[in-house]
C-alpha cells in the first residue's frame, strides 16, 4: 500500500500555494430547474388548450438541484466533484460555465470557463478535421494559430486515421477524445470536465491526466465530475462531495473519498487493499473501479 499511495501522490498535481489567486468564487448559489410537469393528460390537445387558457402556474415543477453552494477555488487546483446520480454535480458545472443562471447567489470566474461534457458533439455532419479548425476559431484563435495548433490536437487525440470522417461516425469515446484535445489546445483559466474522460480508453486516459496536470501547473483550475473514484484520486487535489444538492464535504482528496466510500461502498477499501496485496493494481484500473452510484433522482 505505501508504494501505491506514493505513486498516486506523485501523479496528482500538488495543491496550490495558500495565497494563490482565486479562479472561481461561488457565493451561496441555488440552482433551480423549472420543468413543465405535466403528470397527467400528457398528450391531450384539450389539456394543452386548457393550460393555455387558464394559465395555471401549478403545472410548473421546481427542481432544486443545488441548495446553497459556497466555495472558492484557486489557481493550480484540480477539484473533483463526487456524489450519487442526481446530486447536482453536472448542474453545478453548467452554472460555473455560465450556461445556467443561478436562481440565487452569484458565481464569479476568471476568464471564460470551457465546459466539456459527454455527448456534446461539436458539428456532427462535419469531419473531425473541420471540427478541429472550427473549434479553434470559435475559441478565438486566428486562422494561423488554428493551423499551428492542428497537428498537436490531432496527435493528442490519437485519431489520425479517422480525422477525415464526419464526427457523427465517431464512437462516444473518439468524440470525447477529440473534444478534449480541442478544448485543451488553448489554455483556459478554468476547465470543466463532465464525465468527458470516462469514455476514453486507458491510453487516452493517461494522456489526458498528464494534460490536466500540465494545465494545473500552468495555473489553471480544473473541475472534474466522475463516478470513477480512482480517476479523481489520480487527478484531483481537492474533492467536493455533493448529496441531493448540498455540499456534504469539501477538502483533501483522500479524506473526502475515503469518507464517501465508507458511506456508499464500505468494502471498497478492503478490496483495494486486497488488490494491492496481490499486486494486481494497474494504471488502467481507474474507470471501472470504485464506481459508486446512489439513487436516481
Amino acid at each position: 500500500m505505501p508504494v501505491a499511495e506514493t505513486q498516486r501522490a506523485i501523479r496528482r498535481p500538488p495543491p496550490p500555494e495558500p495565497g494563490a489567486p482565486e479562479t472561481v468564487v461561488v457565493e451561496d448559489v441555488h440552482l433551480i430547474y423549472r420543468v413543465a410537469g405535466r403528470r397527467r393528460k400528457r398528450n391531450e390537445a384539450s389539456g394543452a388548450l386548457k393550460r393555455l387558457l387558464t394559465r395555471t402556474e401549478q403545472n410548473i415543477r421546481e427542481i432544486h438541484a443545488i441548495k446553497g453552494a459556497t466555495f472558492t477555488t484557486r489557481r493550480g487546483e484540480s477539484v473533483g466533484l463526487i456524489g450519487p446520480n442526481g446530486s447536482g454535480k453536472s448542474t453545478l458545472l453548467r452554472a460555473i460555465a455560465g450556461v445556467m443562471p443561478p436562481a440565487q447567489g452569484r458565481i464569479y470566474t476568471e476568464g471564460a470557463p470551457a465546459l466539456l461534457s459527454v455527448g456534446a458533439v461539436l458539428i456532427p455532419e462535419m469531419s473531425g478535421e473541420r471540427n478541429v479548425l472550427l473549434g479553434c476559431l470559435a475559441m478565438g484563435m486566428t486562422r494561423e494559430e488554428a493551423e499551428d495548433a492542428y497537428d498537436g490536437i490531432v496527435e493528442f487525440s490519437g485519431l489520425e486515421d479517422a480525422i477525415s470522417l464526419p464526427m457523427s461516425t465517431y464512437s462516444s469515446g473518439m468524440s470525447a477524445r477529440l473534444r478534449f484535445a480541442i478544448a485543451t489546445a488553448r489554455t483556459h483559466e478554468v476547465l470543466l470536465i463532465d464525465e468527458a474522460l470516462a469514455t476514453g480508453d486507458a491510453q487516452f486516459r493517461r494522456r489526458s491526466e498528464k494534460r490536466i496536470r500540465e494545465l494545473c501547473d500552468a495555473a489553471g483550475t480544473i473541475f472534474l465530475v466522475s463516478h470513477g473514484l480512482q480517476v479523481i484520486r489520480d487527478t484531483c487535489n481537492r474533492v467536493i462531495w455533493l448529496e441531493k444538492g448540498e455540499m456534504v464535504m469539501d477538502g483533501d482528496t483522500d479524506e473526502v473519498i475515503d469518507a464517501y466510500e465508507d458511506r456508499y461502498d464500505p468494502d471498497a477499501r478492503t478490496r483495494r487493499q486486497q488488490m494491492i496485496d496481490e499486486g494486481a493494481v494497474s494504471d488502467d484500473g481507474g474507470f471501472g473501479g470504485g464506481d459508486v452510484t446512489g439513487g436516481e433522482m
Binding site: P21, E22, V25, V26, E27, D28, T70, F71, T72, A95, I96, A97, G98, R106, I107, Y108, T109, E110, G111, P113
Partner: peptide, 14 residues
C-alpha cells in the same frame, strides 16, 4: 466566499 469588493480584477460574473 470573498465578498464582491474583494474580487480580483479580471474576474467576471459567470
Amino acid at each position: 466566499a470573498a465578498p464582491v469588493s474583494a474580487l480580483r480584477e479580471g474576474m467576471q460574473q459567470a
